[in-house]
Write a protein that binds this DNA or RNA. Structure first.
Length: 233
DNA sequence: CAGATCGGCTG
DNA sequence: CAGCCGATCTG
């Protein structure tokens, strides 16, 4: 039971240097739940992502200084999607070279969307994770209509739902699904997939679908109306 | 070669 | 001096 200020699953280790000029000095390391070794606060921040405020976290002791306990930066933070976390990200240079005093493209980049690159099939990293209620009971998953087809290697219904939910959450534009042909998508996902859209084949919505939905809505409204009037008695 | 360990730069 | 991370060592 150590490092309780860290998310569960993290281990903290102290190593005393046995030789050399700095003999006696202790180094502190952390091990992430997936086994990665962390040797500095910046590296810890990279791995934890934006959801954690480490400004008052003392790397050496593993505790939060003063009363500023782990503070969520926004309540929304658990909706942050998994991002690419390869070893290379630690070494990504952040140098900005300005060769011309005024560069339209450069300033556009700076003020435009600074979104993190997302892994192509990031949904797969959520596999095996479920929402549950307060009594630890798993919520049962939803079912998708058979007209909705996934694209990509072995996508589960669950994956497709995650993908659709994320698209609905993030996109301001309409959700239409992937437009490239199934063959093309399978052959070369990296270039064929539209990352703005969820991993489902483009869905054709027919007039019949719309009618059916209208009926559902009016029925739901009637039930609601009925429920409200019966409450007033 | 990966992981462990120490040196030494930086602020 | 502490923190970080590159260099060097080791199995």
């Amino acid at each position: 039971m150590e490092a309780r200020d860290l998310p569960s699953g993290w281990r903290r280790e102290e190593v005393v240097r046995k030789s050399g000029l700095s003999a006696g000095k202790t180094d502190v390391y952390y091990y992430s739940p997936d086994g990665r070794k962390v040797r500095s606060k910046p590296m810890l921040a990279r791995i934890l992502g934006r959801g954690f405020d480490l400004s008052s976290f003392d790397f050496r002791t593993g505790k939060m200084m003063q009363s500023a306990m782990r503070k969520r930066v926004r309540q929304d933070t658990n909706l942050v999607l998994p991002i690419r976390q390869t070893a290379s990200i630690f070494k990504q240079p952040v140098t900005v070279v300005k060769n011309r005093p005024e560069s339209k493209t450069r300033t556009d980049l700076k003020h435009g969307t600074q979104e993190q690159p997302r892994q192509l099939f990031w949904e797969k990293r959520l596999q095996g994770l479920y929402a549950c209620d307060t009594s630890q009971e798993k919520f049962s998953s939803l079912e998708l209509p058979h007209t909705i087809q996934g694209v990509g290697p072995g996508l589960s219904t669950e994956n497709m739902l995650q993908s659709i939910a994320a698209a609905l959450h993030n996109n301001t534009r309409p959700i239409t699904g992937q437009n490239a042909s199934k063959g093309l998508l399978q052959k070369n996902p990296a270039i064929s997939i539209n990352t703005e859209q969820p991993l489902i084949q483009a869905v054709v919505v027919t007039d019949h679908d719309i009618k059916k939905q209208e009926v559902k809505v009016t029925e739901a409204r009637k039930r609601l109306e009925h429920a409200i009037t019966s409450l007033k008695e």
